Amino acid sequence: MDEVDRSILAVLEQNGRISNNELAARVGLSPSPCLRRVRQLEEAGVIRGYRALIDPAAVGRSLRVFAGVRLMRHTRADVVAFERGITQLPEVVACHHITGNFDYLLQVEVADLPAYEGFHANQLAALPGVATVTSYVTMKTLSPEAI
């Protein structure tokens, strides 16, 4: 991967729907070599896909909570059971297996605090192997452009 590939990736990270002609102009290539490089990056798995970023509030998920989850035990069976269960919960938009005070850090999006309370009590805490859940309610999210 060279500097041109890195430039292509930087532009696509900001706008995955940019036309090939515009992308080529921004990175200083003609359209054909640019498209060839993008396809190579896709085939190599560097570009894993394209997606729409949805405003959570617009779809009734205006409350974002980060939840630290600690498991009772760390046997392979317990980890697999928890991970299988957590992937079935649509409120969980990201799940990270981490080091530190928690075993997992979840990003949860729901309508409001009562919805999170129900999710926490009836779904999250009921998953196999969950010992504790510590919740952090997001008050404001800064975009990279605002930092």
Rank of each mutant, 00 (worst) to 15 (best):
S7G: 14
S7D: 11
S7F: 05
I8M: 03
I8G: 05
L9T: 02
L12W: 15
N15F: 09
N15S: 09
G16N: 15
G16W: 11
G16I: 02
S19V: 10
S19H: 05
N20P: 00
N20E: 09
A24E: 13
A25E: 11
A25P: 10
V27H: 04
G28C: 11
G28N: 09
G28Y: 12
S30R: 14
S32H: 15
P33D: 10
P33M: 09
C34R: 12
R36T: 14
R37I: 08
Q40F: 10
Q40M: 10
I47E: 00
I47P: 06
R48P: 04
G49C: 08
Y50M: 15
Y50V: 13
L53P: 08
D55Y: 07
P56S: 13
P56L: 14
P56Q: 10
P56N: 15
A57L: 12
V59M: 10
V59L: 14
V59D: 10
G60D: 06
G60M: 14
G68F: 14
V69Q: 00
M72T: 12
R73P: 03
R76C: 09
D78Y: 07
D78P: 01
V80M: 06
E83V: 01
E83W: 00
E83P: 06
R84M: 02
V92F: 00
V93P: 00
H96T: 04
H96Q: 05
H97W: 04
I98A: 08
I98Y: 03
T99Q: 08
T99F: 11
N101V: 04
F102T: 03
D103C: 01
Y104I: 01
Y104K: 01
L105E: 05
L105A: 03
L105I: 03
V108Y: 01
L113H: 08
A115C: 03
A115G: 02
Y116A: 06
Y116N: 01
E117H: 11
G118A: 12
G118K: 10
G118D: 06
F119Q: 01
H120I: 02
A121D: 11
N122S: 12
N122F: 14
A125Y: 04
A126G: 02
L127C: 01
L127S: 02
L127W: 06
G129V: 01
V130F: 02
T132F: 05
T132D: 09
V133D: 09
V133A: 09
T134I: 06
Y136W: 10
M139A: 11
K140H: 11
T141Y: 06
T141N: 05
E145P: 01
E145S: 09
E145Q: 11
I147A: 07
